[in-house]
Write a protein that binds this DNA or RNA. Structure first.
Lengths: 249, 249
DNA sequence: GACCGCGCTTCCGCTGAACGGAAGGATGGA
DNA sequence: TCCATCCTTCCGTTCAGCGGAAGCGCGGTC
């Protein structure tokens, strides 16, 4: 019933962050395919370089696919432009710096930058988190189109900590605030030990295409002291995007 | 004749760094497919999220594919571990820092780190360069298996500048040198204006899995002053890789 | 050393999904 | 209004993909 294309993609999607290396049988099971079918598909994917086979016989995502994916404008493409600015921001703040975009009703982290001395955070490049519990999420939600916003607020909002804001009315107030101030401060909503200061990054046509944040430990630090730097960096990236020939939808 | 899987991958491979956004017809032409076939494939790929359609109607690589590809152990996976160290190295040197792996007979750049003030270099994350003309390439070639090394040295070696070393005998001498000193210095071999200092990154089993380099302007700077920092960083990453549970083939 | 279990690989005949030529929009420029 | 370009849909034919089954290779167990 399913098309070949869909099957190929399902094979790729069988890999996940917690299981990035799979045997053929695991792969077949996860993709819901008979072993012989999986065997053929995986063989073709491996020959092309979309998958690679490790010394242990397990398969993992290959470099060739990574190269192609690096062309995703909202992935490494956006990253490429933003990187020098993130770099500068990291140097000023010496805290985790993150860049994220909106996809569906979630945040996808496109870049995370941290020295060895920074606080450990559990976001991962390529990872997803919900919109209502992160600084970048609040920024993206605040500037998302109203239809999406209502859909997110109408759905049940998962609680991560005692501080997670799960009340639609209160979130609505926070989002309005984000729109007027131009920054979001998410305090302990996803992890009690950290808070983040986020600001919107705009594309050439003025739409918000990404959000950027600094994650700092919540013990005593005054988040407001980070606001100017975060805001300035976000503006810098927006300007660089406008100047670059690439257009982000 | 070609399998569906191959076609799907060819569609993805139609995107390149210089043309990351394509109309349906361009895509069909590049992939060598009839328009109607391309239309169907692209439709399925878009529905899944492997491709996205921009406001202008052009297609580009999608976020979903990027997420999957981020699991490539030699791509973002390796990157993830190395990042904090690269970060630290950048801060000490304030020069371009690069991380690359070997694929086939070329170098693939996995990460490039630079502030706004650094020299502009023409490498790009996800990009490829030949082994004989770059610092990271020399390191990877020096530690590659002898079969590959001979194959590379036997093939014609492209000249990029007057300083590019294209003589197999001289290269062989340089590679031996890299193995004894543990660092490679590539002076103006790819661009006259810059030189790079590179060192090997080893996986848990001692194999060289990547190389790391600092690119500095060639005007008067003494490359040897960078050697200790580069070497220390490479060792640090190697140790971190050994400590992490992920194994890089 | 014979047996078993597990995971991978190969084979092959059937079938329906993929194919692509052709016709039909949609858009925009002359 | 006409033409050019690009995109979308349709539909009959065919052959590539399918997957059950059988075979292989290895490591563990009695």
């Amino acid at each position: 019933m399913p098309t070949v294309t869909a099957r190929v993609l399902d094979v790729l999607a069988a890999f996940s962050a917690d299981r990035p290396r799979l045997t053929l049988s695991e792969l077949a099971a996860r993709a819901g395919l008979p072993l012989s079918t999986a065997h053929r598909l995986v063989g073709e994917l491996t020959a092309w370089g979309a998958l690679e086979r490790g010394d242990d016989g397990r398969y993992h995502v290959g470099l060739r696919l990574w190269e192609v994916a690096a062309l995703a404008p909202r992935g490494l493409g956006l990253r490429e432009t933003a990187m020098p600015f993130l770099e500068d921001l990291y140097e000023v703040t010496r805290q985790n710096v993150q860049l994220a975009v909106l996809d569906g009703t979630e945040v996808v982290y496109v870049e995370r930058l941290a020295g060895r001395s920074s606080v450990h955070v559990f976001t991962r490049v390529g990872g997803r988190l919900p919109l209502h519990a992160t600084g970048v999420g609040l920024v993206l939600l605040a500037h998302a189109d109203p239809g999406l916003r209502e859909r997110v607020l109408a759905a049940p909002l998962r609680r991560y900590t005692a501080k997670t804001v799960c009340d639609p009315a209160e979130l609505r107030r926070m989002l309005a605030d984000v729109r007027t101030t131009g920054v979001a401060i998410s305090d302990g909503q996803i992890e009690l030990i950290s808070l983040s200061v986020a600001a919107p990054v705009r594309g050439p046509n003025g739409d918000v295409v990404a959000a950027l944040s600094v994650v700092v430990p919540s013990d005593g630090t005054n988040p407001h002291s980070f606001v100017p730097a975060v805001r300035a960096t976000a503006r810098g990236i927006s300007r660089a995007l406008a100047a670059s020939e690439h257009h982000f939808q």
